[in-house]
Amino acid sequence: MSAAILIVDDEAHILRLLRAVVERGGHHVVTATNGREALHLARTSSPPVALLDLGLPDRDGIELVKQFTDLGISVIVVSARDDISEKIAALDLGAADYVVKPFDTDELLARLRATLRSRTPQRRRVDVLQLGDVRLDLGARRIQRNQSEVHLAPKEYALLDLLARHAGRVLTHAQLLREVWGPAHEKDIEYLRVAVRAIRQKIEPVPSRPTFIRNEPGIGYRLMVPEAPAEGL
């Protein structure tokens, strides 16, 4: 396995628990209990991903999100703070994901895998996603469902494309609106709702029970890609 995952949490038993979970997922682990240690490890052992608690004794973890992201480390915030504005702040600062304590360990591992996957360099990344019976070819800008073409409006396609390029990661409403509709429409959530609904009508097996584009209440959307069984890491 490649470089170790950095886990930052000031509570010893939670740190132990996170270590056990991540090691169960087949990863090496380095740990830190405060911000200073965490930054030191981030620089010396260059982990691909850091699981970061926001409530650190020596500084606010939200400061580290930006510093880690600048160092090229993907950050998954694992916090007991269930505050919507804090989640959005962390994600907007570049955090790859946000998991609230108490968490489901399988869920945490799935998020970790998705984050690691999204770090694959662009040229090596597959441009084709299979979502159930829907085949999404980002290179050719084509969507097929059971061999027949699916036609999306330009904004709908741009939205799906953006979500697909960050598959498994939650993108905030503001991020999606900014990228697809432009900075002036950052608060026009209605556009987003309407487009998501339209896409679901065209690609979901049961649009009222979405399986691909999933909602994070108050935060944003995430494209869930079924994991290949062989990828058990």
């Binding site: 007991a80 703070r81 489901d104």
Partner: peptide
């Protein structure tokens, strides 16, 4: 409220993880 929330969630994390184990 944030600190109450934190103090409630932290043991729940251990509890839930323990049950999963």
């Amino acid at each position: 409220f944030a600190s109450i929330g934190h103090d409630l969630r932290t043991p729940m994390t251990a509890l839930r993880a323990g049950l999963e184990g």
